[in-house]
Design a protein around this nucleic acid. Structure first.
Length: 237
DNA sequence: GCGACAG
DNA sequence: ATCTTGTCGC
């Protein structure tokens, strides 16, 4: 059986993508207005979820892990595998990844108080990063935890560090592990930046990213590897 | 026009 | 994100 290789993008596909991008921009402008940057969640969360995704060609693997807020013990996990339609375009990440996250979250039996997402929230060109987009779609509290900067300039305010743009603190620069690069925490939805930072810090254990996201990352990677192994061993029959 | 650019 | 082992630097 001939090797299943990734299909190259035709000019027609490229045109379709360009069209989608226009619609996506429009959607972001509308959804961004629905973001609530205030605490609309329990004073003390009991269940925290982490979401992440992995890819293998045009296959995407979404994963979610629900942990007990106090013990950081995993209580439930779910995954979902989908064909990804949208390419990766900086500032449009959610249109590629959101379907994967929503798919696995829909399978949850437990109802998390807040979702930690690997990507920015409002620290985004149109104030609608992946975390915010997911939060608005779900109508649930979400926190953005990005490993790299997208917009805003690093600025120190007293003892704290933020990513600032036009005098507005869009994200908190948080040193989660000594000697490691910091992570950028921003409001996703229904949570204040202050609370977002407290939640992330509480969920830090031995990794640079909070445990819920770390758990989801492992799950997505495992799913990806399993799929690759079977399609390699059985030549995808 | 050039550079930057989450995952 | 993904491809990949050892290796250069603080």
């Amino acid at each position: 059986m001939p090797p299943a290789k990734a299909k190259p993008m035709t000019t027609a596909d490229a045109a379709a993508v360009e069209f989608s991008i226009k619609k996506a921009r429009r959607a972001q402008a509308l959804l961004a207005q629905k973001v609530i940057a205030k605490d609309v969640l329990p004073a003390e969360a009991r269940l925290v979820a982490g979401v992440d995704a992995a890819y293998a060609g045009d296959l995407g693997f979404g994963a979610v892990a629900v942990l007990d807020y106090e013990s950081m013990q995993i209580l439930e996990t779910q995954t979902a595998t989908l064909r990804v339609k949208f390419p990766y375009v900086a500032t449009l990440l959610s249109f590629r990844e959101l379907p994967l996250l929503v798919a696995c979250i829909r399978k949850l039996k437990l109802q998390p108080d807040v979702f930690l997402v690997d990507g920015h929230g409002v620290a985004h060109s149109y104030r609608l990063g992946l975390a915010s987009h997911l939060g608005v779609v779900l109508g649930k509290p979400t926190v953005g935890v990005a490993k790299n900067r997208l917009i805003g300039e690093p600025k120190q305010v007293g003892k704290d560090h933020f990513l600032v743009q036009n005098g507005e603190a869009l994200a908190a620069v948080v040193q989660t592990q000594r000697g490691a690069k910091p992570v950028y925490v921003s409001v996703g939805n229904m949570v204040s930046l202050k609370s977002a930072v407290n939640i992330v810090k509480h969920c830090i254990r031995d990794a640079r990213v909070p445990e819920p996201i770390q758990a989801a990352h492992r799950l997505a990677s495992e799913k990806r590897k399993a799929k690759i192994d079977t399609s390699t061993t059985e030549e995808g029959k």
